[in-house]
Design a binder for these strands. Structure first.
Length: 554
RNA sequence: GGCAGCGUAGCUCAGUGGUAGAGCAGAGGACUCAUAAGCCUUUGGUCGUGGGUUCAAAUCCCUCCGCUGCCA
């Protein structure tokens, strides 16, 4: 019986390249999850896109003398390239800049307005008399009241890290022209979040399968009470407010970006030729998963569900497996100080699977974890190359040479061989269960344990000795080893899709690993093998220093 | 400042009431098909601090310290 799975992935902000923190937290986990479900034979729709709106992009555009859309489009192309190289298998990765997205956003806006979930109110906001425009938080600079730093922006002080209100800034001035802002009335729309509190709380309390930090955080947040939030801004970059008299305002990004999950599903349906197909992933028997970093929790467990409750009969999230953060060489990641490993840089120098491996085995599922180059190279050399890659290579090269490049004909499997087969079957099930429960780290460790066990099996059976006197016994032993390697290929496929596909082909199979299903796919005796090559390469330890030196510069 | 999560072996991390775990690093050994890989044995921790509950606590409760995130 096939299940249907909707996977929403956090929308990366298109104002800079992706870094490993984002990959470990929000992008690799859903891909592993999606690949597992597809292999299992389930229907998957995995969508996301670039978030093109918001003030960081307009500021960057003004600084670089470009249009916001140029900046956003450049990074969007870079994201697409990164997904392809890293193997992040979106069914659709779109942007918030499409006409479709604006249409869906405005429809939700108007529906919520019509039903009384959105109301108007006038607020007093900073306005620059010189530029003749309202100033969003980030357009105002001043002196931090906490630490005295003079380049503090309106939302948070970069020097001491404290968040603050624009009104608290000492000597505030417009970031563009330096003029002191005045306060001026402006009418805005507010989402009546407070009215959803009780419904949300009742719903959230039933989600006992959520990760503890996600559940506790959300419950406490709701128990403290919700404030209505403004969902429009006095800017000209974003989705227009579909109400007359609001031509100079736009819908605020936090309201609009989450709608992307729905608009992307609709765009995907349109391009598939069946406009109504999106419904099969939004209504009825389908589980929706949202993969995000911990900073995004309230938007996905409170605000987006509230919007969905107010809008229509669409499914609420089934699970929001938010990850914690990745630190780099023991320090908090900082894009402004360039204390980050950028994905395009990584991909220009290394293969995708070693990174996918490290980030899987060291995924920040329950607490922040650390990325270090030493650990990356160590895991690559000692675990991927030595344990798994070498297992595959020692079996394939020995079989290839000893049995004319074909899968050997076996005549019987002894008790030890049968025990190993059962272990493989059991692990395949266990790993599948762990993956469907979003326990990625444990899943990959269990999968790797089969490689260890198979290395032990080979050492016990020593087919390289046995073959001298009893070639048939060696054939029997090696056949079991080939079976188990084929099983490893399937179990590790969600994590290491590129090398699994290679192994699939070395074993003489055609087509894609995914098409063969989440099951032990037995090599047929006589099946021709491809000349084997190592699956992974060792990395020089000197790279540790080389890569570490790149951090913090530029 | 409020809320949530985390703080376990030299390092990276598992482990939510019942005799402290894995991998790597360190020490020793047998083997040699394989990318000098793999396999076996082994050293190593008063589970951040101080209290409490319990026959029993890394695990539950409280204090404090530190880290991360959200909010003011």
């Amino acid at each position: 019986m096939s299940e249907r799975i909707f996977i929403g992935v956090a929308w990366p902000y298109a104002d800079g390249p992706l870094h490993l923190g984002q990959i470990a937290g929000a992008y690799l986990p859903p891909d592993i999850f999606a690949r597992y479900h597809r292999t299992k034979g389930n229907e998957v729709l995995m969508v996301s896109g670039s978030d093109q709106h918001g003030t960081p992009i307009t500021i960057k555009a003004e600084q670089e003398g470009k249009k916001p859309s140029e900046i956003a489009n450049d990074y969007h192309q870079q994201f697409l390239d990164s997904w392809q190289k890293l193997g992040i298998s979106f069914d659709l990765f779109t942007t918030t800049g499409t006409a479709n997205h604006a249409e869906v956003t405005q429809d939700i806006f108007l529906t919520l307005l019509d039903r009384g979930h959105i109301y108007r109110a006038t607020v007093s906001l900073p306005f620059c008399p010189q530029c003749q425009r309202f100033l969003p938080d980030r357009y105002i600079e001043g002196t931090c009241p906490h630490c005295g730093f003079s380049g503090t922006r309106g939302d948070q002080c970069d020097a001491c890290g404290k968040p603050l209100n624009t009104a608290e800034l000492i000597d505030p001035h417009c970031r563009l022209c330096g003029t002191t802002p005045q306060f001026k009335d402006s009418e805005h729309f507010f989402l009546k979040l407070s009215a959803f509190r009780d419904r949300l709380l009742a719903w959230v309390r039933q989600q006992t399968h959520w990760r503890r930090n996600v559940l506790n955080f959300t419950v406490r947040y709701l128990e403290e009470g919700l404030k209505d939030r403004a969902i429009t801004r006095d800017i000209d970059w974003g989705v227009p407010v579909p109400v007359s008299g609001f031509g100079a305002k736009r819908i605020y990004v936090w309201f609009e970006a989450v709608i992307g999950y729905l608009s992307a599903a609709k765009e995907w349906a349109k391009s598939s030729g069946d406009e109504e197909k999106w419904r099969s992933f939004w209504q009825g028997e389908v589980k929706s998963y949202y993969f995000i970093g911990k900073d995004n929790i309230p938007f996905h467990t409170i605000i987006w569900p509230a919007m969905l409750m107010g809008y229509d009969d669409l499914n609420l999230p089934y699970d929001v497996p938010a990850n914690e953060f990745l630190t780099i060489e023991g320090r908090k990641l900082s894009t402004s100080r360039n204390w980050a490993v950028w994905l395009p840089d990584y991909l220009s120098r290394y293969d995708p699977d070693p990174l996918r491996y490290l980030l899987s085995v060291n995924m920040p599922e329950t607490s922040d974890t650390d990325f270090s180059w030493r650990e990356f190279i160590r895991r690559n050399n000692d675990e991927l190359v030595a344990t798994y890659g070498n297992l595959v290579h020692r079996v394939l090269t020995f079989v290839y040479r000893s049995f004319d490049g074909c899968v050997p004909h076996y005549d019987q499997i002894d008790a030890r061989g049968k025990a190993l087969e059962s272990t493989a079957y059991a692990l395949l099930n266990d790993v599948g269960k762990l993956l469907s429960d979003c326990h990625f780290k444990q899943a990959i460790m269990e999968a790797m344990s089969l490689a260890h066990e198979t290395n032990r099996y080979l050492d016990e059976k020593s087919p390289w000795k046995v073959i001298k006197d009893d070639p048939q016994a060696a054939a029997n032993y090696l056949y079991v080893a080939l079976e188990v390697i084929s099983c490893l290929k399937t179990m590790l496929y969600p994590f290491l899709p590129f090398s699994s596909q290679k192994l699939h082909e070395y074993l003489g199979f055609k087509g894609n690993v995914e098409d063969d299903g989440w099951q032990l796919h037995l090599p047929s005796p006589g099946q021709e093998l491809l000349p084997p090559e190592p699956l992974f390469s060792k990395l020089d330890e000197g790279l540790v220093e080389e890569e570490t030196n790149r951090l913090g510069h530029g």
